[in-house]
C-alpha cells in the first residue's frame, strides 16, 4: 500500500479544471516533484493534500486513511508556501518556534531546536530579524526552517527555492536533498524548474493543464518522454515526423532522408519521434545523413548548432572538448542510433 495516494483528485474552479482526475502513489520516504509550467495546477494539488483547498472530486489517502474529514491543523504536514506566508509580526526565531509552541514543546528544547534549524538553513545570525527586513532568499529559508523544525513525516514544498540566486539555489538543493535523506520525510516538491526537479527527485510527475503527462524517474522521463510536451519541457529536443515502413529486413523508421531500424515497440504508419541534441553525432566520411550548418552559438560548456538536414531542421549540441566544430555554411554528415529515438503519439511533433 502506498504511503500517500491521490485518487482521481479533481479541482474545478467554475468551468475551469485546475486539476483533472490526478492519480499518484507516493512511497514512504520518497522525494516526488510536481513539475509543469505556471498555472498547470501544481499548487492546487499541493493545497488539496494539505487540506486548504477542498477537492471537487477524488480523495487523498494517507496510509490507507481518507484525509477528507481531517482538518489541516491535524494533518501534521510541514509546508513551505509559494509566498512564504511568514508571520510578519514575528521575528525569524518566533516564526520557527510557532509550530513547536503549538506542540507544547518546553521552552528550553524549543530554543535549542530553533537555533539548530536556523543554523541548518544558514540563518544563525538572523534570529531576531523581522521578515520585512530580510531578502527574498532569507525569507524563503525561514519558511523552510519553520516547516522543518516540527520534523514532519511529510514535507510539502511549493517552489521553495524559486527566489534564490543561482548559486544559493544549488547549495540549498544539495542541503534540501541531504535534509530529506536524514529526516526520511516523504517529500512532495512543486517546481517549474526542470533542472531542480531532475536534480532532487526520485520520481517526477509532469503536469500540463491539470493533467498528468508522465510519472517517471528523471533519467527515464528524459530519455523516454511520453509526449512532445514532456520532451520539450525536460531540456532541448528535436521533434520529428516520420513513418514506420515494413521491409523484408524488418520495420524501418523513415524521417526525410533518414532510414533506421525501427525502435522496438513501433507499429507501422505515421510516427512522431524525439531525439536529444547531444545524441546526434557527426559521421566520419560521407556515411549517414547530410546537412548544412545554418547557425553556430558558443555556450561555454558546449556549442549549439542548427543543421538543415535531409531529416529536417535539427538542433545539435557538441561538447567544448577541443575537437573541431564545423563553421556556419559547412556541410556535415550526421549519424543516429535507434535507441536514442523516443516514440511519441503520432502527430505530437509540429
Amino acid at each position: 500500500m502506498p504511503y500517500i495516494a491521490l485518487e482521481r483528485l479533481t479541482k474545478r474552479y467554475g468551468d475551469h479544471l485546475a486539476v483533472d482526475a490526478l492519480d499518484l502513489a507516493v512511497e514512504k520516504g520518497e522525494f516526488i516533484s510536481l513539475l509543469g509550467p505556471s498555472g498547470c495546477g501544481k499548487t492546487t494539488t499541493l493545497q488539496m493534500i494539505a487540506g486548504f483547498v477542498e477537492p471537487t472530486g477524488g480523495r487523498v489517502m494517507l496510509d490507507g486513511v481518507d484525509l477528507g474529514a481531517m482538518k489541516p491543523n491535524r494533518r501534521g504536514l510541514g509546508i513551505v508556501f509559494q509566498s512564504y506566508a511568514l508571520f510578519p509580526h514575528m521575528t525569524a526565531a518566533e516564526n520557527v518556534a510557532f509550530g513547536l509552541e503549538m506542540r507544547d514543546v518546553p521552552r528550553a528544547e524549543r530554543e535549542k531546536r530553533v537555533a539548530e534549524t536556523l543554523a541548518l538553513v544558514g540563518l544563525s545570525g538572523f534570529a531576531d530579524r523581522y521578515p520585512k527586513r530580510m531578502s527574498g532568499g532569507q525569507q524563503q529559508r525561514v519558511a523552510l526552517a519553520r516547516a522543518l523544525v516540527i520534523k514532519p513525516a511529510i514535507l510539502l514544498l511549493d517552489e521553495p527555492l524559486s527566489n534564490l540566486d543561482a548559486k544559493l539555489r544549488e547549495e540549498m538543493q544539495i542541503e534540501l536533498r541531504s535534509i530529506q535523506r536524514i529526516s526520511g520525510a516523504t517529500t512532495i516538491l512543486v517546481t517549474h524548474d526542470q533542472a531542480e526537479a531532475m536534480a532532487l527527485s526520485d520520481r517526477i510527475v509532469l503536469m500540463n493543464k491539470g493533467r498528468v503527462e508522465q510519472i517517471a524517474r528523471p533519467d527515464e522521463a528524459y530519455a523516454r518522454p511520453a509526449s512532445a510536451f514532456v520532451a520539450n519541457f525536460l531540456g532541448k529536443t528535436n521533434l520529428l515526423n516520420g513513418a514506420i515502413e515494413s521491409t523484408p529486413q524488418g520495420p524501418v523508421l523513415v524521417v526525410g532522408g533518414l532510414r533506421l531500424p525501427a525502435p522496438a515497440g513501433a507499429g507501422s504508419g505515421p510516427q512522431s519521434v524525439a531525439v536529444r541534441p547531444e545524441r546526434i553525432a557527426f559521421a566520419s566520411g560521407t556515411a549517414g545523413v547530410s546537412g548544412r550548418v545554418t547557425m553556430r552559438v558558443f555556450q561555454g560548456l558546449h556549442w549549439l548548432l542548427q543543421v538543415d538536414s535531409e531529416a529536417g531542421p535539427l538542433t545539435l549540441v557538441r561538447p567544448n572538448d577541443g575537437s573541431p566544430v564545423p563553421a556556419e555554411g559547412e556541410t556535415v554528415a550526421l549519424t543516429f542510433s535507434t535507441q536514442d529515438f523516443a516514440l511519441l503519439p503520432a502527430g505530437d511533433a509540429p
Partner: peptide, 23 residues
C-alpha cells in the same frame, strides 16, 4: 494580509482561535 498566512498557522497545528489570536 497574505491569505496563506492563516493556512501556514493551521499547518503548524494552530486551532482556528489560536490562529486568530496569535496570527
Amino acid at each position: 494580509l497574505d491569505p496563506q498566512v492563516e493556512n501556514a498557522a493551521g499547518s503548524l497545528g494552530a486551532s482556528a482561535f489560536t490562529t486568530w489570536r496569535r496570527v
